[in-house]
Simulated scan of single mutants.
Amino acid sequence: MQTLSQIVSGMRRPRLLVRAARIGSEGYTRSRHLPRLIGAQAAADPEEALTRLLETEEPLDAARRSGSAGYSPARHVELLSAIIAELEIARREQASEEIAPPPDHAKASGSASFLRAT
């Protein structure tokens, strides 16, 4: 099974659309944009949010490809911007989990740590 990162990497969209989405992702505010894009109960987990954003974007891309009159480039850029931003949030969270010390690892600072260390 492909990871969400691989799925997003495999997406093929017009260069101008992707460029606009990258610019838009810089102004992405999760608490403001996510509920509007995927519903009132926005996902707390970036991977769940990505899954729902991808499900929402797929029919929009199909409308773009078919030349549908109901296609909204602005909405498509918003969704792609959110996908890019959520992917970055997921990557940062994954990186911080990999770097974080094990939960039983005590910090060597403060008086309690000093007393244990000496």
Rank of each mutant, 00 (worst) to 15 (best):
P59S: 03
P46L: 07
Q94N: 15
H105F: 14
G70V: 11
E78G: 00
E47N: 14
S81D: 02
T51F: 10
R52D: 08
L60I: 06
T3G: 14
R92F: 09
P14R: 00
T56I: 05
G67V: 00
H33M: 10
E47I: 04
K107Q: 13
A100L: 09
S31G: 11
L79N: 15
A90F: 06
L54R: 07
F114E: 14
M11I: 10
A95V: 11
P103N: 11
I7W: 07
E98C: 05
I23P: 00
G27C: 02
A40Y: 10
G24C: 02
L34G: 06
G67E: 03
Y71N: 05
H105A: 14
L17Y: 00
A21D: 01
E47F: 11
P101Q: 13
K107N: 12
S113N: 14
L34S: 04
S9Y: 06
L17I: 01
G110L: 03
S109F: 13
G110P: 06
Q6E: 15
P14G: 00
E55D: 13
A43E: 13
H33A: 11
G39M: 02
L60W: 06
T56N: 13
E86F: 03
P46V: 04
E47Y: 13
T56Y: 10
A117H: 12
R12M: 05
A100H: 02
L115A: 14
R65A: 07
G39F: 04
